[in-house]
Write a protein that binds this DNA or RNA. Structure first.
Lengths: 212, 212
DNA sequence: GGTGCCACGATTGTACGCAATCTGCGATCC
DNA sequence: GGATCGCAGATTGCGTACAATCGTGGCACC
């Protein structure tokens, strides 16, 4: 099942299955050389995650999203990450502070590269992921982690084209540092507010790209 | 599938399946006179919702929760509902205001009954549900609605014993009115803050009950 | 020419069987 | 006596067959 789930999910996120497209169990099963059973389970799981919409006796289709939906989704993510930062401020442990600092340092190093080679972009993306993941881990809230994991990369298919703008990346770096300081200082409300703003800025940039 | 899902879920929420208990597909299938297939799908769905935890080749068990987990879950719910109230403040439509007022009036009527008969308690619970559901609908955010639906009644099995305390119920009524006013006045930040406080008070009451 | 109905194809829903995997217990060896 | 290996039972993972359901197209009738 896990293989069917992974592959279907990837196909949706990467845009190989287009929004609105019907996902017929038999066809997908043949495509991945599996039987319908694991495909069905994968589709159910994807439905629960919101990547797919399905009606009884009518099957599943790739859920499509308007720009507004996407903005709302980012709003949701912003609240969830803000809550994570809030919790982290009172729960983070020393080794997680170290990990957070290391990830922020990586981000800084990549930013200093003064190049927009694919490799640099990937390094920035990876450092960014580590920063957010560390804060999430420090929040020590399983269900929140689960929800965020599923919410964060839903808009990935729309982000694929997104270019990293230098000013925007520098601003992100600043916010990461401010959030880190608030968390380490044990100030939940500032950590929360800063994280909210940080994610909402990401939303605005994405929306501007899509509209423009 | 939908029948298996509903029945298993109910059994867990009502506490008939105890936390930590293994959910063996074959046994459940026999219990509900179904085959394993729909049971499997239901278990996967429940896993996605967080009611059940399952490991590869080892099957599913009813997820157990400590008081701390429960408190965290309520914290999460509080943030989600606060976000819903925030959105509702700028999106609510006239007929939804009417519905909200009607639900609040029902709550008031039930509260005035000066009795703690089961019927009254049920009326209060139902009015409360309608109030929150209306605000959620007014937020017009599908995914948020989906998440909340799944988050709200997870602690139900722990709430089963909970008695409605009069002072606490009156306080809830007051908050409902304040939240309603903030939403109708189009003030998102107050609506959000009030809802957050409202749900967190519910959490504190529940936690006090469980610890005491 | 339009509208309603029926039958057929396509697809999902469910059942069941077999293979793969894990768990616990007992026998064997050191 | 304790530890380890192996086997048997239990359980999950997956494949396949059949039943139920839905949408569509054609045909008859108005």
């Amino acid at each position: 099942m896990t293989t069917a789930y992974t592959q279907i999910r990837q196909a949706i996120v990467e845009g190989r299955y287009e929004p609105g497209q019907r996902l017929i169990e038999q066809r997908i099963a043949e495509e991945f050389a599996l039987s319908r059973t694991p495909v069905r389970e994968a589709l159910r799981r994807l439905e629960a995650e919101g990547l797919v919409r399905s009606e009884p006796n009518r099957g599943a289709v790739v859920r499509d999203m308007t720009t507004d939906d996407l903005a709302d989704l980012y709003g949701l993510r912003a609240r969830l990450e803000a809550y994570a930062a809030e919790l982290a401020a009172s729960r983070i442990e020393p080794h997680q502070v170290e990990e957070l600092d290391a990830a922020i340092a990586d981000f800084d190093r990549a930013l200093a590269e003064q190049s927009d080679a694919l490799e640099v972009t990937r390094a920035i993306t990876e450092a960014n992921r580590r920063i957010h993941a560390t804060i999430l881990a420090a929040a020590r809230h399983d269900r929140l982690g689960q929800l965020l994991e599923r919410t964060v990369d839903v808009p990935l298919s729309f982000q694929a084209f997104r270019q990293f703008d230098r000013g925007e990346t520098e601003r992100s770096h600043l916010f990461h540092q401010l959030i880190r300081d608030a968390i380490v200082a044990g100030d939940p409300s500032r950590a929360s507010a800063l994280m909210l703003e940080h994610v909402l800025q990401g939303r605005d940039v994405l929306v501007a790209h899509l509209d423009g």
